[in-house]
Simulated scan of single mutants.
Amino acid sequence: MTTTMPAPETTVTPPVPRRRLIRFGGVQLMHLYTWLIIGWLILPILVMILFGFNNPSGRYNQTWQGFTLKWYGQLFALEDLTSALILSLVIAIAASVISAALGTGIGYALGRHRFRGAGGMNLIMFATMSSPELVMGASLLTLFVSLGVGLGPLTITIAHVMFSISFVATVVRARVLTLDRSLEEAAADLGANAWTTFWKVTFPIILPAVFSGFMLAFALSVDDFVVTNFTAGTSVTFPLWIWGATRVGLPPQVNVMGTLIFAAGVLIAVLTSIRSRPRRQTG
């Protein structure tokens, strides 16, 4: 009797669907597009950093003529530029602190409570953020002149607070909307009043959002030119000084100061990112 052995089964690999190939190519294309955009955005910053090491023959830094580190040692050699930078930093700190204090309260109220006028408040905030700076600067100038307020550092600070509050409130409101209310309810069950609950429970949770709003307000204040130009009077901030110096050429100290400000911002962002990472529990 002859026994017929069954033929071994052969595994046939199905062809890769065409959709998967197209999908894979689309992902790679998006990665390439993203890196191109990042490179385009960071290119002016790299040029600024590079020209901070330039060694021009004259005072102004227009063409590359050699490598040097001397401008980091002569960072504060130009007194008017140093004064403009100090004024910008002082105004930015004051405006950021005031904006963070006021914007945190507004953002918390809009994110936690439902009250009459909340929709109008949201509309005003987004209108402030989306309105052209030219319109805001001209309107604030008209307001200060009508009230007889002399233009100077005080009016610049008020103007910067006016457009920074909305950004802080929006960031804080977004965090409050995702806040777990059971934590506050637990604090209330343990006998804490509303004020104690806010400072002991709520505020530490929303503190990263408050800090983010503070840093955003600080960056907007240091960078602002249009509104500051309307409300500065005879005061000269860092952006106004740079605008005036572009008519003849920028000294290398401007690039050095810009590089240091950028490096400080990157350092703060990295430290904040590291601190916000979830900690591993060891047991």
Results as ranks from 00 to 15, higher is better:
205 I>Q: 09
91 I>N: 10
170 T>Q: 14
191 G>R: 03
39 G>H: 14
69 L>V: 07
198 F>P: 06
249 G>M: 08
270 V>C: 00
84 A>F: 00
53 F>D: 04
250 L>K: 02
166 S>R: 07
80 D>R: 06
124 I>H: 05
269 A>T: 12
89 L>R: 04
223 D>F: 09
260 L>G: 01
281 Q>G: 03
167 F>V: 04
17 P>T: 07
134 L>A: 13
240 L>H: 08
227 V>M: 14
10 T>G: 02
267 L>D: 05
257 M>Q: 08
232 A>M: 01
132 P>G: 12
104 T>G: 11
195 W>E: 01
246 T>A: 11
162 M>H: 14
257 M>G: 07
79 E>V: 10
258 G>I: 02
220 L>K: 08
260 L>R: 04
138 A>N: 15
208 P>Y: 01
161 V>C: 15
221 S>I: 01
166 S>T: 00
261 I>R: 03
178 T>H: 15
188 A>P: 06
160 H>L: 15
254 V>K: 07
202 T>I: 12
178 T>G: 01
112 R>T: 12
238 F>I: 01
205 I>L: 07
68 T>K: 15
162 M>Q: 11
220 L>G: 03
138 A>D: 12
270 V>I: 13
207 L>N: 00
281 Q>L: 11
256 V>D: 01
129 M>E: 03
272 T>D: 06
59 R>M: 01
131 S>M: 14
186 A>G: 11
147 L>D: 00
136 M>T: 14
30 M>H: 12
24 F>T: 10
1 M>I: 08
123 L>P: 01
258 G>T: 10
162 M>R: 04
231 T>A: 13
133 E>S: 11
267 L>F: 12
129 M>P: 04
83 S>I: 02
101 A>F: 15
114 R>K: 12
146 S>D: 11
236 V>S: 12
240 L>T: 08
143 L>H: 07
154 L>E: 13
157 T>G: 14
218 F>P: 01
140 L>W: 13
112 R>D: 04
102 L>A: 13
